[in-house]
Amino acid sequence: MTGHVPPSEEDLEEDDGENGLTRRRRSSGSDSQCQVDSGRSLPRSFDWRDQDKVTSVKNQGSCGSCWTFASMGAMESAILIKNNQKASSNNIDLSEQLLVNCGKQQAGYRGGGCQGGNSQIAFSFVQKDFTTSESVRPYQAKDETCEMNSVRSDRRSISDYCVRSKFRYSYSSRAEQLSDDTMMRALVQKGPLYIAINANPLQYRNLRSGVLNEPGCSTQTNHAVLLVGYDGSDNSWIIKNSWGPYWGDRGYFKMARGSNMCGVNTEIAWPIL
Rank of each mutant, 00 (worst) to 15 (best):
V5D: 00
V5K: 04
P7I: 07
S8F: 05
D11K: 03
N19K: 07
G20E: 08
T22E: 13
R26Y: 10
R26C: 08
R26M: 05
G29A: 10
S32L: 12
C34P: 02
C34F: 03
Q35N: 12
R40P: 00
P43E: 06
S56K: 15
S62Y: 04
S62C: 13
T68D: 01
A70C: 09
G73T: 02
I79Y: 14
L80R: 04
L80Y: 13
A87C: 10
N90C: 09
N91I: 05
N91W: 12
Q97M: 06
L98I: 15
L99D: 03
G111F: 01
G112S: 09
C114F: 03
Q115T: 12
G117Q: 02
G117C: 04
N118Y: 11
S119W: 00
I121L: 14
V126W: 10
V126Q: 13
Q127T: 06
D129F: 06
F130I: 08
S133G: 08
R137Q: 02
D143M: 05
E144A: 02
C146L: 06
M148Q: 13
V151I: 15
R152V: 02
S153K: 12
D154V: 00
S157V: 00
Y161E: 03
C162I: 01
F167L: 12
F167V: 03
Y169H: 15
S179K: 09
S179H: 10
L187K: 02
P192M: 08
L193G: 01
I195D: 00
A196T: 13
I197H: 09
N200I: 06
P201A: 01
Q203L: 15
L207F: 15
G210R: 15
T219R: 13
Q220K: 13
T221M: 02
N222G: 04
H223D: 14
L226K: 05
Y230L: 13
D231K: 05
D231C: 07
G244D: 09
Y252P: 11
M255Y: 09
N260T: 09
I268Y: 00
A269H: 03
